[in-house]
Structure formats: structure tokens, C-alpha cells
Computed example of a mutant assay.
Amino acid sequence: MMSLNKTIAYTKNWKHTFWIALLLGGLIPILLMTLEPFDNSNRFAYKYLILSGYAFCIIIPLLLVHPIENYVYKIQTNRWFILNECLYIITTLFLIYIFSFFYHFYVVSGLPTFTSELIWDFIKSFGLPFIPIVVPLWLYLRSKYGVIEVPMFDKEHPKKVKTVTIVGNNKSETLTIFESDFIFAKAQQNYVDVYFNTENGMEQQTFRSTLSNIMKQLPKAWQVHRSYLVNLDYLTTVEGNARKRFMKISVSEDTIPISQVYYKALNKRLSNSSLELQK
């Protein structure tokens, strides 16, 4: 089963969001002109011009929601989860349906009154059938233009200011440490080993939990592999090649593997931090 708390690429850039809105907005009128779902091609003038207006029913909601999703992305410390993407798609689709209904009601049909039943009938008849066509393309474009961001190197590390408490599935499993003392975490089946810095060196505590649950509790935790989280303030170098890459950290001899999906963001982060990156 796919975890809804898995981090995925996020389309933060306004330009990319605008292009996605434009592409989807242009697709809908083309489908309407081709499929003619209203079955009234002979009954109203300027058919193509009027049907083109549905493009704005797509573009406007996408642009209106983008500041809100950017705000959520920011408060989640520049991380975006599958759950966020699902909620975003559902919410924005609902707005698109509402905009489309009122455009259909006032401009296309010119009906005198409407009811909530008419809105629901419109969504069932003219909204839901387009989901298998539009949503996969929408998700593909967001993934294509999306990025996974990682934080810049913290020159003031270690800064022992804020504490965090990690809690496992068993409530008795708790650990309170300084946020900056978290080093890395490794998932093994139903357990996660959390490694952290102490006055006596690196120590480890095991939690019965998932990696995604641990990550949500640690602002300094950044996923670099399906089984690993790491505090990038401890990162020293990335080594290996295109087939197999791994990182080294400053407080341990352990090496941490890097998945290809996260390598691009790490490469950018290392370049901006003037660290050496071996291809």
C-alpha cells in the first residue's frame, strides 16, 4: 500500500503553474468541441467562442489555489506529501466544477434559476467523465515541473536551541533531543533506528514506527532514500556514480545510500554550498 506521507516533487514555481493551467485550460475546450457533450451544437451561435470560455474555469481556480498550496508547502518546511497532492487535486477540482457550472448556467444555457441538485447533476454528467483524461495529465505535469528541495548548509551548525520529541507507535517510546542533534534514521521493516548526537558521541534508539511518521516529527529530517532520513547539516560528501551513490556524514563512518529521485536536489544543494560532488 502506498504511503500518503511519502514526500514527492512539488510545483512551487508560478511560471510552471501558469503553464500547467494554460495547457489544461486549452485541453478542455478542445474536448468539448470534439465530443460535444451538451448535444446542442445547432442551437447557439458562436459555439466555439463560448466553449473556449471554459478554459478560464480551469485557469482561474489553479492560479487562485497556488498561493495557498505554497503556504502549506512553506509551513511543512518545504516538503510536499502524497496526501497534500490528493487534497490539492480534490479541492481544486471542486472549484473547477463550481466555476464551470456557473459559466454553463449563465453563459451557455442562460437558465433563470438553479438549485444544488442542478450543480450535482452537472458535476456527474459533465465533470466526472473528464477526470480519467485530465487528472493523469495534470499529475504528470506537476511531477514533471516539480522539484524536491533540500535545505542549504547551516553554517551555524550545531545550534542547540529548539528541542523535538520523537514518539513511536508505542507511547512509551519517546525521545527528546535538540533538533540539531538528530543525525540520521534508518528504517528496517516495522522499526526505525534514530541516530542522534550526545556529549558522549552518537547514540541510537529504536522506535516501532514508519519512516514517514518519524520524518513528520523531525524538521531536520530529509529523505534521501526509501529507508533513510538524514540531517544534511552533517553531510560532508556524496560519492559514487550514476548507478550507485552514497553520502558520508561527519560524525560516523556509516555511509548512507541516495536514491536517484533525490539526487538532483542534493546535487544542487551541494553546488550551492561549495561542497565537492563526485560524479
Rank of each mutant, 00 (worst) to 15 (best):
212 S>M: 05
87 L>P: 00
225 H>W: 07
8 I>N: 09
254 D>V: 11
158 P>Q: 07
151 P>T: 00
241 N>T: 11
206 T>S: 09
10 Y>D: 03
113 T>H: 11
159 K>S: 10
258 I>G: 00
260 Q>E: 07
86 C>V: 15
278 Q>I: 15
152 M>V: 03
245 R>A: 09
58 I>A: 10
269 R>Y: 00
83 L>G: 06
187 A>D: 06
101 F>E: 01
257 P>A: 10
250 S>L: 05
175 L>G: 08
71 Y>D: 09
116 S>G: 04
12 K>R: 15
87 L>C: 09
85 E>C: 05
167 V>F: 06
10 Y>W: 05
260 Q>M: 09
258 I>F: 05
199 E>S: 12
239 E>Y: 06
71 Y>V: 06
98 I>S: 12
30 I>G: 08
242 A>M: 10
7 T>K: 09
63 L>N: 07
21 A>V: 06
168 G>F: 09
181 D>E: 14
72 V>L: 08
229 L>G: 00
70 N>W: 08
110 G>M: 08
219 P>C: 06
115 T>W: 09
142 R>L: 04
218 L>W: 06
221 A>F: 05
244 K>D: 03
209 S>D: 12
269 R>E: 00
49 L>W: 07
206 T>W: 08
109 S>A: 15
279 K>Q: 14
151 P>I: 01
166 I>F: 07
41 S>Y: 13
139 L>N: 04
268 K>T: 08
84 N>H: 13
64 L>Y: 11
